[in-house]
Nucleic acid binder design. Sequence first.
DNA 1: CGACGTGTTGATCTCTCTCAATTAGAGTGG
DNA 2: CCACTCTAATTGAGAGAGATCAACACGTCG
Lengths: 249, 249
Amino acid sequence: MTQTKSTIDCAACPLRALPLFIAHSADELEMLRQIKRREVFVPADHELIHEGQSDAPLYTLLAGWAFRFKTLSDGRRQILNILLPGDFIGVQQKMGDSAAHGVITLTPAMLCVFERDALWVMHREQPSMGFNVTWLTAHEESLVDEHLLSVGRRSAEERIATLLILIYKRAAALEPDAGKSGVPFPLTQQHVADALGLSLVHTNKTLRKLERRGLHKIENARLILKDVNALARLADIYGDGLPMPRPLV
Amino acid sequence: MTQTKSTIDCAACPLRALPLFIAHSADELEMLRQIKRREVFVPADHELIHEGQSDAPLYTLLAGWAFRFKTLSDGRRQILNILLPGDFIGVQQKMGDSAAHGVITLTPAMLCVFERDALWVMHREQPSMGFNVTWLTAHEESLVDEHLLSVGRRSAEERIATLLILIYKRAAALEPDAGKSGVPFPLTQQHVADALGLSLVHTNKTLRKLERRGLHKIENARLILKDVNALARLADIYGDGLPMPRPLV
DNA sequence: CGACGTGTTGATCTCTCTCAATTAGAGTGG
DNA sequence: CCACTCTAATTGAGAGAGATCAACACGTCG
C-alpha cells in the first residue's frame, strides 16, 4: 500500500471531468481540500477494510474497482455491491455499525483518504455536501435493494443477465467510448457467484449458456453486450434511463 | 387514510420517551416543528408508497409496522426490509432514485409527515440533524446488507433463524417488557417467504420444523424465542450486542 | 352458511449444488 | 527454453434443497 503526500488538488480531481458528476462551488472545494489527507494506491485483491473493523477511514474511490462483502463463519461469502470510481467507502463503518462489511479491490486502485471526522465536518461546514453524502448513501442503498431483489427472486439466468446489464450501465457512464469494445469487467466467475448467491459451477454454466446464445461476451476482462434487448428481457428491466448526474464526495 | 391537523408536538413525541433514541437540542426540536406537516393514520395492509412513485412525501413511522418491497413484472415480490417505529420512510424516493420501492403497512400505523423539501431543510438549518439522516440511511443500508447475506448465502433454516432473531431484537428494543410474552410479529408466512426469497410452502415447513424443535413460538401475532442460543447458532450470529442508541428523525 | 385468507401437510419435480476431472494461461525457477 | 505450480475457466454426473402442485383445516366475516 503506497501512500502519496503530494496531493492531487480536488479542483483537478480526474473524476470531476466526467459529465456524470455534478459541479461544486468554490466553498465546497475549499472544504474538500481541508478534509482530504492524501491519496493511497493499493494493488488488486487488497483487503482495504476488514470485516468487523470499526475504525476504518473514509475513502473515495478515484480509480479502479472494488467490492463490499460479508461472510459467514464457515467462509460463505456474499458480495453486497460493486464499487466503481466515484463511490464512497467506509460511511457505514464511520457510523459505528456493529456488523460491518469488508472491502476488497478488484483492480489496482487509487483512493482519496479523508480525515477522521470528515463526515461530520462536511455536514457542518457545507450542508450542501452533507446533503450529497445522504444522497450517495441513499443511492447506494437502492443499488443493494435491486441486488437483493435479484438474489431473492430471480433465477440464475435472470440474475446473471441483470448483473451484466447493471454493471455495464455503471461502467459505461465512466467510459469515454461506451459501445465500442465494451467496458472493463475485472470480476472472476467466483466474484459473480458470490455476488449472485450462486455456486461457482452453476455460474459458469449459466454464463456460458448466455454467451453461446449470443447475448454477451467476456474477454480479456472486458464485457461486451451483444444483445441488450434479450438481456433486458431476461432481467425484467424495463425503464432504461441513463444514470442521472450524481454528487461526487 | 385519516389525516389529523392537530399535531403532536415534537417535544412530546411518543418515541422520544424510549431510551433507544438520542436527545435533541431545543434548536433541533424547533426546526422539526417547522418542517412537520401533520400526522397520518393508515390501516393495516395499506400501500403507503407505490413502486415507481417518485413524488412520495417523507415520513417517520411513529407507531405500527410496515415493509419496503420491490416486485418483478410477473408478480414475484421481494421484501427489502421491515420498518418499525422510528424508521424513516421515503428518503430514497426523495433522492429521486429511478427504481424506487413500494411501502406497505403490516399493522395500523401512525406516521409523521414532513414537508416537501424537509430533507434539505434539515441539512441546511441543523447540520447535526443532517448528520443524523446520513446515520439513519447508512444504518438502514447495513440492515439490507445483512438481509442480502441471508438471502444469498444462508439455507432456509438459517434464514428463518436469522430473521426471527433480528426482528426480535429490533422489536424488543421498542417494547417496555421484553422477554415476557414475546414481541409483536405481524408478518404472515407469505411475508416471511417474500422477505427470505423462499416459497410459501417451504417457509411453512421450515417454520414448523423449528417450532417443533422448540426454538420459538409464534402465536396471536406475537413471537417468542424459546431457545435463543440454538437460533443464534443456526443463524451464525456471534456478537449479541444490544442495539446502540440511534437518532430519531 | 359460503367465501376468503392463512396455515398445514404430502407428493412430485427441477433448479442448483456438490463432487470430480480436465484444460488453458500466467508466473517461476532451474 | 522447459518443467512446475497456481489460478481461472469448463464440463459431466449425481444428489439434494427448495419449488410447485394439490388438498384440507380453521377462523373471520358479510
